[in-house]
């Protein structure tokens, strides 16, 4: 495990290095905050997909929920940033609890599509409740960022540092969750829900708990996003955002803990390069993603780890 992390770190550092050798079009701070946002989103989604075996197509709902509830709280005035973050995460967890309670009983494909349906519902709610959300204009007028504990999130450097801190804290928490007895139960459900049920696990309760936890972390990532753009927009809760998170996971690998972070780095860098080079952005991005996924048939880190494991087995 220590070596996995080292490996992921090296790859990550490599990509970060590339970004600053002149190939990148955006600066270090900007990249860091986007990496923190989407890395956290991808890591949270992978708790569902990689650890629990639940493929959600609607994860962006919780990203959007975090962003909007945080933005609205801050605009209402009188809230400190830490308090608003806590409430936004709670609100997102609550939404995940309600949606999860209805979805996690269903098997694979139905689960995937029902989560997507709830996300589209939230998306249209955001669009139509113009009085509250600003409709398709998004939350306008900026989000106030009063300083707290000496941190001024209005400064890009502070925001990037804060984002990285949130990412790191979440990664440590997620790792503990996955390594705990609870995490073992989630992995049992992924591997063989039938036998796990036989052994006395409540498939429903554990799946629901995973869904809520993943939603809460996605909520935090949405909070960071609304701080980054100083607003909130309906696309946060659109299916394309869920799709991007799934792509990041697929690129990096779902079986290695830090795979989604590697995937996030690849995705963001590809995105930046391609945007700088061509206006047929979607076409190139799609083709490259297709080549990587079809070529390796798994995420990059999964591929590397399995290749190493196979070699180790062949050795003695």
């Amino acid at each position: 495990m220590a070596r996995d992390i080292l490996l992921a770190g090296v790859i990550l550092a490599g990509f970060l290095g590339l970004e600053f050798t002149g190939l990148g079009s955006s600066g270090l701070l900007d990249f860091a905050i986007r990496f923190a946002i989407f890395g956290l989103l991808a890591m949270s989604l992978n708790l569902l997909i990689g650890t629990t075996g639940l493929v959600s197509f609607g994860h962006a709902a919780y990203f959007g929920m975090g962003a909007y509830s945080f933005g609205l709280l801050m605009q209402s005035g009188g809230w400190s940033i830490p308090a608003a973050i806590a409430v936004a995460i709670l609100a997102t967890a609550l939404l995940a609890l309600v949606v999860g309670a209805l979805c996690v009983r269903l098997s694979e494909i139905y689960f995937a599509f029902l989560t997507l349906a709830f996300q589209m519902l939230l998306h249209s709610l955001i669009l139509s409740w113009i009085g509250l959300t600003g409709g398709d204009q998004g939350l306008m007028g900026g989000i106030p960022k009063p300083a707290f504990w000496g941190i001024e999130l209005a400064k890009p450097a502070h925001l990037a540092g804060f984002g990285m801190f949130c990412l790191l804290l979440s990664v440590v928490l997620l790792r503990q969750i996955i390594r705990s007895p609870f995490g073992a139960a989630l992995r049992m459900l992924r591997d063989n829900p039938d036998r796990a049920g036989f052994l006395g696990l409540s498939v429903y309760r554990y799946r629901l708990a995973a869904f809520v936890i993943a939603g809460a972390f996605a909520g935090l990532s949405g909070v960071l996003m609304s701080l980054y753009v100083s607003g909130a927009f309906p696309t946060f809760a659109f299916w394309t955002t869920s799709g991007e998170a799934i792509f990041m996971i697929m690129l990096g690998g779902i079986q290695v803990f830090l795979g989604p972070l590697v995937g996030t780095a690849i995705f963001l860098l590809l995105n930046d390069w391609i945007t700088a080079l061509t206006e047929h952005h979607g076409l190139f991005m799609g083709t490259i993603l297709l080549i990587i996924t079809l070529g390796l048939r798994k995420g990059l880190l999964d591929f590397v780890m399995e290749w190493r494991a196979a070699r180790r087995r062949a050795a003695p």
């Binding site: 969750i177 390594r179 007895p181 609870f182 796990a196 052994l199 006395g200 554990y206």
Partner: peptide, 15 residues
């Protein structure tokens, strides 16, 4: 652990 109903813990490490 599943049989003993001890899988709810988040804080301990497994196993």
């Amino acid at each position: 652990m599943a049989h003993a109903g001890r899988t709810a813990s988040l804080a301990r490490s497994f196993p």
